[in-house]
């Protein structure tokens, strides 16, 4: 049996924050693997280190120690510009609080990653297609303030997908939404996995959402809980 293709392989990650005299171990030797095309939920109590883990997986932050391989590449060996390129091309990040640029339209927000990728040809078309894919065909020229929360999160998802990343990382994507639009966003994310095969990692507190995924990873006190491996 050939080893499954791991998009993410994290080995003994630690992240330590120094708060004055005491060290806070946000991650304390967490290891996990996520395979291509999977939909995985990360759960755990508040303060257990889920967001810290996601930031490292998304190359927004560097671990204090441990090794992280993304698509087989050792991330800690990359310099800042290479990290920026990885964030741009391989990772799509969706935040709890949307994080859209409020001055510009949905289209311009979605175009932004393409701009940083240096793509000029067909850029607007690609951005428009991404917006159509998340069901916002008729809101393309709206600004974030003119959109509902659910619609804003759709724009954020379109932005995360426009560069066709290997994986989509979502840190509590439905946390700021009512249950109805939360469900719609989850449906959208699952559809994207089916249609494009994008690997998806979702941090959530909601058991209902976790139940929709193929696998759940529990984080406790900065470590990955083991029963998972038995499955």
């Amino acid at each position: 049996m050939s080893a499954p293709d791991a998009v993410i392989r994290a080995v003994e990650l630690t992240k330590t924050y120094r708060m004055g005299e005491v060290d806070v171990h946000a991650l304390n030797g967490a290891s996990l693997e996520i395979y291509r095309g999977e939909v995985v939920a990360i759960t755990g109590p508040s303060g257990s280190g889920k967001s810290t883990m996601m930031n490292i997986l998304g190359c927004l932050d560097r671990p204090t120690s441990g090794e992280y391989y993304l698509d087989g590449e050792l991330v800690s060996s990359l310099n800042d510009d290479q990290l920026a390129a990885v964030r741009n091309r391989k990772v799509g990040f969706v935040f709890q609080s949307f994080n859209l640029l409020s001055r510009t339209t949905a289209l311009a927000n979605v175009e932004l990653p393409l701009r940083y990728a240096g793509i000029t040809k067909g850029r607007t078309d690609r951005a428009r297609q991404a917006l159509v894919a998340v069901g916002l065909a008729n809101r393309i020229h709206h600004r974030p303030t003119e959109l509902s929360g659910g619609q804003q999160q759709r724009v954020a998802i379109a932005r995360a997908l426009v560069n066709d990343p290997a994986m989509l990382l979502a840190d509590e994507p439905t946390g700021n939404l009512d249950s109805h639009s939360g469900k719609e966003i989850m449906e959208l994310i699952l559809t994207l996995n089916k249609e494009r095969g994008t690997t998806i990692v979702i941090v959530t507190h909601d058991p209902a959402i976790a139940a929709q995924t193929q696998r759940t990873i529990r984080i406790m006190d900065g470590k990955v809980e083991q029963p998972e491996a038995a499955r």
């Binding site: 998304g58 927004l60 800042d80 920026a84 390129a85 964030r87 741009n88 990653p113 990728a117």
Partner: peptide, 8 residues
């Protein structure tokens, strides 16, 4: 901007 790929 940095999170979606802006370089320094």
């Amino acid at each position: 901007r940095k999170a979606i790929g802006a370089r320094r």
